[in-house]
Design a protein around this nucleic acid. Sequence first.
DNA 1: CCACTAAGGATGCACAATTA
DNA 2: TAATTGTGCATCCTTAGTGG
Length: 272
Amino acid sequence: MVVYDPAAASQQRDAKRARRPSADAGAVVPYDVQPINAVPLKAIASRLPRLAPAPAVPEEPPCLRRHILPALGLRDDLPVHFIDRKRVTGTDLDAHQNRFRIPTDGVLGRLRPILTPEELDAASLLHDPAPRPRRRPEPDELENIAAGDDSEAEHQEQGQTARKKRQGRRHGGLPVRLVDLAAGASGELLLSRWESTGGTVVKGEGYMGFVRRCSFREDDAVEIWAFKQRAVRLFGAAVCDESHLHLLIVRRGGSQSQRSSSASTAHAKSEG
DNA sequence: CCACTAAGGATGCACAATTA
DNA sequence: TAATTGTGCATCCTTAGTGG
């Protein structure tokens, strides 16, 4: 097993490309995608919030290239990027929440550099929104919010601080697929960063169905890996098609010893 | 078939708790 | 102390059920 180092791999690919521009299909820059350095990384980096030290890149899941990528119809030599690790929370699995939160550090520091500007834009990750201060609205703002709402006006008359929540904006998102060793790939979900909190989530209709089938449970430690197959054409012929961005969620270690057996079961299931 | 209603799903804001 | 994360819940949307 080789620890995958995206930076080192990138350097190797660059070196290869310099020698043999099209010999290594896995290293070919897709014809219709701007190179990663098209993203104004310097500009982004200068505005990045202070990030925690990047976690050491763990080993790739053993069956990733042998089973998962082929099962998804993807090339087995795709670059796979470690995004981050986190502990699954109750809200990640809550049927009413219907979303999976991605740690901000991983999104900004490791996921964002691998996406094109178009993809970043779709996920609301292209620009860093100015942080909106958390504050209670001024009385005149309350009036505006409550305009046309008699009950709200009554509340104010009663000296209550109750107010209506603003209806959230629909953020849309970047189409992604979540992948789990037990559940396989989800349907098309959306990766999006919220304007209000800057939190990044994967959401969508099929999420809860995916969660019900997946191998992780609340309080499990999981790693998040990302991979995406870019379209490659050779002499006008499609060598491989563009795929969705895939986010692989793998349970690793975990604090719950009783879950280790189910983890191995899930792993064995995916292996077999 | 259409209109109405209720229940549950989907979404994202607000804020408390936690962390660095 | 500021930034980040986790949680509660308001709001809108969709769909199933019901009655005319």
